[in-house]
């Protein structure tokens, strides 16, 4: 591990002033950053410890949404009564990730910025366009059982590992940030950049920007929502596929639906084609499957990950069927 300086900051202006150093990284819980530093994938010269910034609150907004501070831990997010009441799929998504220990450490801001668990990315001895631009993608012709089926290019087929972000994408969350020249905001669905030929450029955050929080707009449909994650063991593993969904059914027809997929792309995948196909359609398993197919028509499977197309389709049908039953109770 490279040697580094350490500064603890107590206010946001102090943090972004230090963050102007391109070799600096903000340290939240460290559950991903410290791990990557041990592997020499991340080599910061300075860590700016943001855990004591006054960004640890979850507050209702005037319009009936929620604002979640960037240093709120995953545990506190998932345990919060208003999160569980208004956006249950968000609480479920957070609880589906990592372990009790890691959720106590990890922060919301860090969760958004965590890096892919692609084994080629985390091994500096292997080529990886994300870690070392221009070196090639070893996964395309290598181990890619858990890689992307949507939005990938020949330059990178890695998936984003966050469960939380999948639910946030479904609920139209916005990411708020601060820079030395003032604050800014990005919709979560535009926060992660398309892969293109620049997989090393992952977010639309300006250089040195500090994530200050996430704003969830009011979404009555989210009260009937669910996150379902499939993984290779029962707990404490990254997804091989996941779905966040919210559904409002009136007289047997879909009035409003939100759908996002996880572990299928370099970012949480908001399934807008599926949502369009379903809105106004009958709330039946056939319609749910047709909507999934509408979204997955764009899927491009690699030799070893074609199962994900079927998996996501089945998950969509299962979760929407469960939500339909829940709404009828």
């Amino acid at each position: 591990m490279r040697e580094f300086g350490y500064q603890r900051v107590f206010d946001v202006p102090g943090a972004v002033a230090l963050g102007a150093d391109p070799e600096a990284r903000y340290l939240g819980g460290g559950t991903n950053l410290v791990d990557l530093m041990k592997a020499s994938v991340e080599r910061p010269a300075l860590l700016i410890d943001v855990r004591e910034l006054p960004l640890d609150r979850i507050e209702s907004t005037d319009d009936g949404g929620l604002h979640i501070g960037a240093t709120v831990t995953n545990s506190d997010l998932a345990a919060h009564p208003e999160v569980r009441r208004r956006y249950p799929a968000l609480a479920q998504a957070v609880l589906a990730g990592a372990s009790g220990q890691l959720r106590n450490m990890a922060t919301v801001g860090g969760n958004l910025l965590q890096r892919t668990r692609c084994a080629y990315f985390t091994d500096p001895a292997r080529p990886c366009n994300k870690r070392n631009p221009g070196s090639g993608c070893a996964a395309v012709k290598g181990e890619h059982r858990n890689h992307a089926i949507l939005g990938a290019t020949e330059h990178c087929v890695a998936v984003h590992p966050s469960d939380m972000s999948v639910a946030l994408a479904a609920f139209d969350a916005r990411v708020t940030y601060e820079t030395a020249t003032g604050p800014g905001e990005l919709p979560l669905t535009e926060f992660y950049l398309p892969v293109g030929d620049t997989p090393h450029l992952e977010t639309a955050l300006p250089p040195g920007a500090l994530i200050t929080g996430i704003t969830l707009p009011p979404a009555p449909v989210a009260a009937t929502s669910r996150y379902r994650k499939v993984r290779e063991r029962a707990s404490y593993a990254f997804a091989i596929g996941s779905v966040a969904a919210a559904l409002d059914v009136q007289e047997g027809a879909v009035r409003e639906v939100r759908l996002a997929f996880g572990a299928v792309a370099s970012r949480p995948w908001r399934a807008r084609a599926a949502e369009r196909a379903l809105t106004g359609a009958p709330a039946t398993a056939e319609a749910f499957a047709a909507a999934a197919d509408a979204e997955l028509a764009a899927a491009k499977a690699l030799p070893h990950n074609g199962y994900k197309v079927t998996l996501i389709r089945n998950l969509v049908v299962a979760v929407l069927t469960e939500l339909t039953e829940e709404a009828a109770r």
């Binding site: 350490y6 603890r8 340290l27 819980g29 460290g30 559950t31 410290v34 791990d35 860590l47 410890d49 855990r51 545990s75 372990s99 009790g100 220990q101 890691l102 106590n104 450490m105």
Partner: peptide, 22 residues
């Protein structure tokens, strides 16, 4: 693996990813 679990301010955490200085 969780073998290094300790309590930080009463909450469980893995000490292998926790920098001492922090």
């Amino acid at each position: 693996c969780g073998a290094c679990t300790v309590l930080l301010d009463g909450r469980r955490a893995v000490s292998c990813l926790q920098l001492a200085v922090a």
